[in-house]
């Protein structure tokens, strides 16, 4: 069952796929362990260590104070639930996408498809332009090759037309040749 979307924390676009999610979970667990142990040792408020940019982004987007143990626990539970239940898609491109590209793509997917969708990125140089998207049960070929296949009849028609009707250029060349 997918996580409840209405009251659920927001996943920032910096968190693209499972790798980012796993990184956040490990960081949060380390943070929890460190803060708990420091609190036990000192018995008083302990300053938050330096967090990764992604963690900062996650906390800021959801307006969470990670000094609060309850916030950390809820966030960790949410991230683990996402790791288990969030919808996943696999997208392949002809080249490595830039972070900017990924951000725009993830933004579109989270706003149009599902707010917690996770994206796995693959490489398929053979597709040329476009991409290939794989979901649980479906394979969407949105590559240039597929477009060419769909437009094949147009190409064949144009080829046949060009074969039967010589172009003005070739006719001019034929006229000039005897001289």
């Amino acid at each position: 069952m997918a996580p409840e979307t209405q009251a659920a924390p927001v996943l920032p676009v910096g968190v693209v796929g499972m790798i980012d999610l796993g990184r956040l979970i490990r960081e949060l667990e380390r943070l929890e362990a460190k803060l708990s142990s420091d609190k036990i040792r000192t018995g008083s408020y302990v300053q938050l260590p330096k967090l990764s940019a992604l963690m900062d982004q996650l906390a800021e987007t959801n307006k969470l104070d990670l000094r609060d143990a309850h916030a950390r626990t809820s966030l960790l539970a949410f991230l683990k639930l996402l790791r288990k239940e969030a919808p996943r898609v696999h997208m392949s491109f002809s080249a490595d996408p830039t972070p900017d590209f990924l951000m725009k793509l993830t933004t579109w997917l989270r706003t149009q498809v599902h707010p917690h969708v996770l994206v796995a990125i693959g490489l398929q140089p053979g597709i040329g332009a476009g991409c290939v998207l794989r979901t649980t049960n479906h394979y969407f070929d949105m590559s240039l090759r597929k477009t060419f296949t769909e437009k094949r009849e147009i190409l064949m028609k144009r080829l046949r037309e060009s074969n039967t009707q010589p172009t003005a250029e070739t006719q001019a060349q034929t006229v000039e040749a005897p001289a």
Binding site: V89, T135, N137
Partner: peptide, 19 residues
Amino acid sequence: ILADLEANREAIIQDINHG
């Protein structure tokens, strides 16, 4: 790419929800 995704959006959403 986004135009193609938009064209297939409904199918993607349906598959994700069913999955």
